[in-house]
Design a protein around this nucleic acid. Structure first.
Ligand SMILES: [Mn+2]
Ligand SMILES: [Mn+2]
Ligand SMILES: [Zn+2]
Ligand SMILES: [Zn+2]
Lengths: 138, 138
DNA sequence: TCCTACAATGGACTCTGTCTAAGTCAAGTA
DNA sequence: TACTTGACTTAGACAGAGTCCATTGTAGGA
């Protein structure tokens, strides 16, 4: 985490209390919070932080490649601090729970040239859908 | 298309002018329109059709499995009449153009049991991202 | 310490989609 | 054909998520 703050400082980021608490909230693995969830948690530490600042900071962190935007349900976007190890997502269709997963192989290789229509293909997102154990039990 | 209308009639749908024009708009392959685009095209034929009716009808067609919802950019959902042949999508990062693609193999098999966390996995969506030829030329 | 460019703020605004109450009409019945 | 009825449509209010902007504040360099 302080690694992150160091990297950001090295990139010329002005270090403010707001940016620090947003970065702190986004620490840890398997965290996939919405902007408003980030805002709520940041406001626990810094009550007057505004929603606009949270959105601005999240957008900057995405541009810098420090976090990822994840859209699994067409509701609020989620922000994923696990940006340095490529992964995909497994989503519960009932409760929305999200797990990071690491499929075998490279999904890019499964798209033949004849299916690329002249595009330069740069990336791929895979979203597995299913039912989590606790929803299946209930 | 009249196949579709027949199937719907068989399912007890009351056949209205509004539903007919929405179904007509969604005819054809590689069509991925937003609800408001469907509304605009439907209104060319039936000027007083309301947005609510378009949303209602699209939702019903999705429930019936006649069209698919596609979310590639976290803006408006797109509606895809190609619901009967499984496929995935290739999206231009610059202009948003969407192509249907058919990757080789079954992406479900690339998720090992050890990466399923007890979920019952039922489906998978693959979104390839790249730059289309006309954006690359520009 | 002072300066100033960069950052934070709150509220208005946009976009997408949902909901509701009232009016309309498709299609079954006689 | 005319009647009847519940399914369907409508306009507009409402809501969630996110953006924009004018104003105010401040990090960090001189
Ligand atoms: Mn993740
Ligand atoms: Mn498609
Ligand atoms: Zn669940
Ligand atoms: Zn393009």
């Amino acid at each position: 985490m302080s690694d992150l703050l160091e990297r950001l400082r090295g990139r010329g980021w002005r270090m403010t209390a707001q940016r620090r608490v947003v970065a702190e909230v986004l620490d840890g693995d398997h965290v996939h919070l919405t902007a408003d969830e980030v805002h709520a948690r940041a406001a626990d530490k810094l009550p007057e932080i505004s929603r606009a600042t949270v959105y601005n900071t999240l957008g900057e962190l995405v541009s810098l490649g420090e976090i990822l935007e994840v859209s699994t349900d067409h509701r609020a976007k989620r922000y994923d601090p696990n940006a340095h190890r490529p992964h995909h997502h497994l989503v519960c269709a009932r409760c929305g729970a999200i797990r990071d997963v690491h499929p075998t192989g490279n999904p890019l290789t499964s798209l033949p040239d004849s299916e690329r229509f002249g595009f330069t293909v740069e990336g791929v997102e895979v979203t597995y859908r299913g039912v989590c154990p606790s929803c299946a039990a209930a």
